[in-house]
Amino acid sequence: MTTTNAPLPTYQAKDYKSELKPIWCPGCGDFGVVQAIYRALAAIGRPPHEIAFVSGIGCSSRIPGYTTAYGFNSVHGRALPIAQGIKVASPELLVLVAGGDGDGFSIGGGHVAHAVRRNTDITYIVMDNQIYGLTKGQLSPTSPKGLHTVTSEYGSLEEAVNPLLYVLAYGANFVAQGTPADMAGLAEVIEAAIRFPGFSFVNVQSPCVTFGEDDQQVKNHRATMQSLAKLGHDPTDRLAAMGLAQKYGKELHTGVFYKNPDPPPTMNALIKERQQVLSEKAPPRSRIFDRFLQT
């Protein structure tokens, strides 16, 4: 007799956990995020060696090293281009990208729109903590206006980036948000994002325990988070999603903001189609110079 209804996974969460011990500050939100990722990967069940996990620079970008997947802890802001190169070159791989808000919306901000429109089948997880933690507490692109930090002694003068609204406006087909305060919910949206065919984006409100605001910690998330599903949000309605996304920074919504019910073909699918059509009438590589002969 069984009392469960889930299919038994071949891989367990612990199979995705590496032996490397995280250097994150005790209490960091990212501990919960990596746990959620282990669980999402276990639910999907791809062997670790078929996963490529790319990151940039920042506290959160250490995350690939804490998994048993192939990891690439690259340079600041460039995780997305590298990940897309991997996915285009080897479409059979499961490709994950992770980084912080600085990586994704400041130094690498220019890459996000293009990752969206290129629509390779990758999942981008941003650990958004509204601060530069690794360099010890400077303003980040998602820091609220007026925030006092070591680089904004008298308060920041700039509006915060709204990652959810940006990515929705870029035309992303899957946009979700989570928090380590609800690890189960977070694991669920990450799993859904990975399963989604095409570029998917998960913004994780992952507080910085050392430099973050006291009223923005995981404890506060537990008290204030609101599940989009419970609010009755229709995740196939992009405009409604954008309406809710406007509340970024004021309210903490968790779950799927938008999921295209009819996803367009991924870039990988289009490439495959093109390769098949064109390779049929191709001369062998060894005859590649023949076209230059004057006939």
């Binding site: 490529a52 790319v54 690439f72 690259s74 460039r78 997305l80 281009p81 590298i82 990940a83 897309q84 190169g85 991997i86 996915k87 285009v88 070159a89 080897s90 791989l93 220019g110 890459h111 293009h114």
Partner: peptide, 13 residues
């Protein structure tokens, strides 16, 4: 930057 990044990703793959 993205163009060499993508190429490096392909090489990693």
């Amino acid at each position: 930057i993205a163009s060499i990044g993508a190429a490096l990703g392909a090489s990693f793959a």
